[in-house]
């Protein structure tokens, strides 16, 4: 076989694989979309792969109102904003101290962060549950904010990777001008860590948005639904209306997909920096 033929075949194989992979990813989403757009009577007449004859947005309207999804979005937004502000503040502080100074027990602290990362959050809920209750935070959004601040430690490693790339000469020249360490943190480190903060904020937003178990456990009141629990509650009452459940699923899934398509660069950087330690 000539080299050229071999290259052509290989190129074709690559594209066929990518297209096949793309179809496997998109097929479930496509099926969800065309069926969410079918009225009940239409879905009785048509097979699950047949296109609706006319687009019926009724399911989306009913899902939005019936699931109180507007409220769920607001609750989620509130928790995301508080957690992200806290995470970025605490994360940059820890990274500054660990990344720039030597002090006793630094290794222990770093090791604690590493170990905690491998403790599956759900397992410790058996014990965390009591702590949250004794703090009087059960069934409030602050239980979740506290939990997200305390257990999402991957961000520390993302920040540490970034801070090593900020030249120490910047700190030193600021010190020659008499800047305090706090001033250096506030005026040099924090602003220069912005790309890392963007990454942390996006990853944290996605993680909180997609988390089901913590809100399910700590915020059982129906008025405190976040997007995941609000969607989860469709199971049961709406079981006879699969098209409605699909509409609700798309309402919940699509905003983050759009956010992701806009901000891919930060997400990929964060995924890699969070998983791979230098």
């Amino acid at each position: 076989m000539s080299l050229r033929l071999q290259n052509t075949l290989l190129g074709t194989l690559k594209y066929l694989s990518l297209i096949a992979g793309g179809l496997v990813v998109l097929f479930p989403i496509w099926v969800a979309l065309i069926n969410a757009l079918k009225s009940n009577s239409a879905s009785n007449r048509l097979g699950p792969l047949q296109l609706p004859i006319h687009l019926d947005w009724h399911n989306f309207v009913v899902a939005w109102a019936g699931g109180d999804l507007g409220h769920a979005f607001l609750n989620t937004l509130y928790i995301v904003v508080l957690s992200v502000i806290g995470n970025v503040t605490l994360g940059t502080m820890v990274a500054y101290v660990i990344g720039r100074f030597d002090f006793p027990f630094k290794g222990v602290i770093l090791a604690a962060y590493l170990v905690v990362q491998f403790i599956p959050t759900i397992t410790t809920q058996v014990a965390v549950f009591g702590i949250i209750r004794s703090l009087g935070l059960f069934d409030t959004p602050y239980a979740l904010v506290l939990l997200y601040l305390g257990t999402n430690v991957v961000q520390i490693f993302i920040y540490l990777q970034f801070i090593h790339r900020i030249p120490r000469s910047l700190d030193e020249s600021a010190m020659l001008e008499g800047a305090s360490y706090f001033r250096i943190y506030r005026s040099i480190i924090f602003p220069l860590l912005m790309p890392a903060s963007a990454t942390v904020a996006i990853l944290q937003t996605i993680a909180i948005y997609n988390d089901l178990y913590s809100p399910y456990l700590y915020m059982p009141s129906s008025s405190l639904g976040v997007v995941s629990t609000a969607l989860f509650r469709f199971r049961g009452p709406y079981n006879a209306h699969p098209n409605l459940i699909l509409a609700a699923s798309l309402i919940i899934a699509i905003p983050v997909v759009l956010l992701y398509l806009l901000l891919q660069r930060f997400i990929f950087a964060g995924i890699v920096n969070g998983a791979v330690r230098e």
């Binding site: 992979g21 479930p28 997609n210 899934a253 992701y260 398509l261």
Partner: peptide
């Protein structure tokens, strides 16, 4: 972008879609 997309989708939504 397409191949990574499922990772950012809400887990509840993904499971509901697959249940269908």
């Amino acid at each position: 972008a397409v191949l990574f997309m499922p990772f950012v989708m809400n887990a509840v939504a993904v499971v509901f879609i697959f249940r269908f």
